[in-house]
C-alpha cells in the first residue's frame, strides 16, 4: 500500500494507521476502542441516524458520527471525553425513554456504562405504543421496540433486496417504518427474504419462530448452537447459520462477512428449512 493511501489518526492518544477511506469507527476498532453502534452494520451503508457512535474530533464544532466520518490524516479523536460520554448517555436515554429496549441485547451494557436514566422523563412522557403486527406465519413486527435505525429499510431497499416494501413514513417522533398506507405486509411488495429481521438490533422485527418461543418462555439463546452450512436450494451457494435449540432449527441467518450473501438471504434460504422437521415448527398463523 502506498503512503498516500494510509492515514494516521490519534484515538484517545493512541496512534493508529488505517487505509484511506476507512471510517473513524474502523480506526477505533483498530485502536481496540469499543464503540457502541446501533444503526451501523458492516453489511449496510451507514445510515448515520442514531448518533450513539459519536466521537470528539479536535477542531470540529460538533461531535461527529464515527460510523460515517472518514478518517483524515492527523485527526485527533477522543472517544471517552465528557462531551462524548454525555451525548452517548443522552442518546441511549432518549431511545430508552420512547421505546422498549428490553430485547436490545447489545445496548444493555452501554446503557449501564453511560448511566442513562430513561425514566427521568416521567410516566406521562410520549412513548411508542402499537399493537404487535402478526400478519403471516414468518415474521412479526413490534414497533414499540423500533429505534428507527433505518437498517430494515436499507436491507429491504438498495443495500440488498431492492424490494422497497418498507420505508420511513411520517416525521419526527411520529415517524414509523411503514408499508404504503400501512397495508398488511403480505399485500405489500415484501417477498419475505427476512433480511430486515436479520439486521434489526432491538428485536422489533422477529422471526415468528422466535416470537412464539419467547411467548411460551422457551426462547433460550444460551442453549442454542449455531452451525454454518450451505443452503439446499438454488446453486448460488449461500452460507447459512442454522440456529438450533433442542435439536430443532429455530432460525436461520447468514454471516455478514460472507462474500456471497453479505448476510442476506432469500425466502427459501431463510425459511425453506421447515421440511427438515415437519410438524415441529412453533409458528402459529397470523391474523
Amino acid at each position: 500500500m502506498s503512503k498516500e493511501s494510509i492515514v494516521t489518526v490519534s484515538i484517545d492518544g493512541k496512534m493508529v494507521s488505517v487505509a484511506a477511506g476507512a471510517t473513524l469507527l474502523d480506526a477505533c476498532r483498530q485502536a481496540g476502542v469499543d464503540t457502541p453502534t446501533l444503526c451501523y452494520a458492516d453489511n449496510l451503508t451507514a445510515a448515520n441516524a442514531c448518533r450513539v457512535c459519536v466521537v470528539e474530533v479536535e477542531g470540529s464544532r460538533t461531535l461527529v458520527p464515527s460510523c460515517s466520518r472518514s478518517a483524515e490524516d492527523a485527526m485527533v479523536v477522543q472517544t471517552d471525553s465528557e462531551r462524548v460520554r454525555h451525548s452517548r448517555k443522552m442518546v441511549l436515554e432518549f431511545l430508552g425513554s420512547g421505546v422498549d429496549l428490553s430485547q436490545a441485547d447489545d445496548l444493555a451494557g452501554w446503557i449501564d456504562y453511560y448511566g442513562s436514566e430513561p425514566d427521568r422523563y416521567g410516566p406521562d412522557r410520549a412513548m411508542i405504543k402499537e399493537e404487535v403486527r402478526i400478519q403471516d406465519s414468518l415474521y412479526i413486527r413490534d414497533y414499540d421496540k423500533c429505534v428507527l435505525c433505518y437498517k430494515c429499510v436499507s436491507a429491504c431497499g438498495e443495500d440488498a433486496q431492492h424490494s422497497f416494501a418498507i420505508a420511513v413514513a411520517g416525521r419526527g417522533f411520529d415517524a414509523r417504518i411503514r408499508t404504503e398506507f400501512d397495508v398488511r405486509l403480505p399485500d405489500s411488495a415484501c417477498v419475505y427474504c427476512g433480511n430486515c429481521v436479520a439486521v434489526c438490533p432491538t428485536n422489533a422485527l422477529q422471526f415468528k419462530t422466535e416470537f412464539d418461543l419467547r411467548k411460551m418462555g422457551e426462547w433460550k439463546p444460551t442453549e442454542q448452537a449455531v452451525t454454518r452450512t450451505v443452503c439446499s436450494y438454488c446453486g448460488v451457494g449461500c452460507n447459512l447459520e442454522v440456529h438450533v435449540q433442542d435439536d430443532t432449527i429455530v432460525k436461520v441467518t447468514s454471516p455478514d462477512d460472507h462474500d456471497v450473501t453479505s448476510g442476506h438471504l432469500c425466502i427459501k434460504g431463510r425459511f425453506g428449512w421447515s421440511y427438515v422437521q415437519p410438524g415441529q415448527s412453533a409458528a402459529e398463523e397470523g391474523d
Partner: peptide, 9 residues
C-alpha cells in the same frame, strides 16, 4: 422442499 413452509406470497 419448498412446500414445507408457509409462504405468504
Amino acid at each position: 422442499q419448498s412446500g414445507g413452509f408457509d409462504s405468504p406470497i
